[in-house]
Amino acid sequence: MKTDIILAGVGGQGILSIAATIGMGALANNLHLKQAEVHGMSQRGGAVQSHFRLSSDPIASDLIPRGGCDIVLSVEPMESLRYIDFLKKDGWIITNSTPFVNIPNYPDVDEVIAKIKERKNVIILDADKIAKEIGSPRSSNIVALGAATPFIDIPFESFEEAIKLIFKKKGEKIINANIEALRAGRAVADAR
C-alpha cells in the first residue's frame, strides 16, 4: 500500500495540523512515512505545500515525483491547481471552495472551480461554511481532511485518536470540535 498526498494552502491556514494528524494516524498503524514541509519566508502568507508520503514499505524520496501523487488535499481552491502536475491522471483533488484572498489579482473563483471540475476525480466542499455550522470556524482544515479520509489507507478511528493526541494540550472542547469537524468532512465524501 502506498498513498502520496500533497497538502496545499496558504501560510497560516493549518496544513501542518493536517499533516500532524495523518502522521499520528500512520504511526499508530505502523506505516512508513515521509513528510516534507515548507518553513521560513513562505510561511508569511505565501503559497505553501507539504509532500506527505505513506507506505507499507520503506520510502526513498522525501519529494513526491511529478505525475505520481494520489491526492491533492487543499484548504483553498486556487492552491489545489498549483500542484496538479504532481497528480496522477486518476488522482483525487479534494479542496475547500472558500478562497483565501490576500493578493490583489486573485482569479475569478467560479473559473477556478470550473477548472478543478475538469479533473476526473474531485470533491469540492465549503469547509469554512461547514466548520461555522458546527460551531467551530477554526477547524475548516480538519473538515477538509475529513473529506479525504476515505482515500487514505488508515482506519477512520485512527484519525480520531490522532486528533485526541494532537489537541490534547488544548482541552476536551477543542478535541471534540475537531472530531466533529473530521466527521462532517467525512460525511460530505460519503454522501457523494
Binding site: G11, M41, R44, R82, I84, D85, I103, D108
Partner: peptide
C-alpha cells in the same frame, strides 16, 4: 510520457502567484 507532468496552459493562466508578504 504516460502521466501528466505539466500544468495545462489554460490552468497556468488562472493561477496567480502568491508570494510571502508582511503580516
Amino acid at each position: 510520457e504516460d502521466e501528466v507532468t505539466e500544468i495545462p496552459q489554460d490552468v497556468k493562466d488562472i493561477i496567480a502567484n502568491r508570494p510571502p508578504a508582511m503580516c
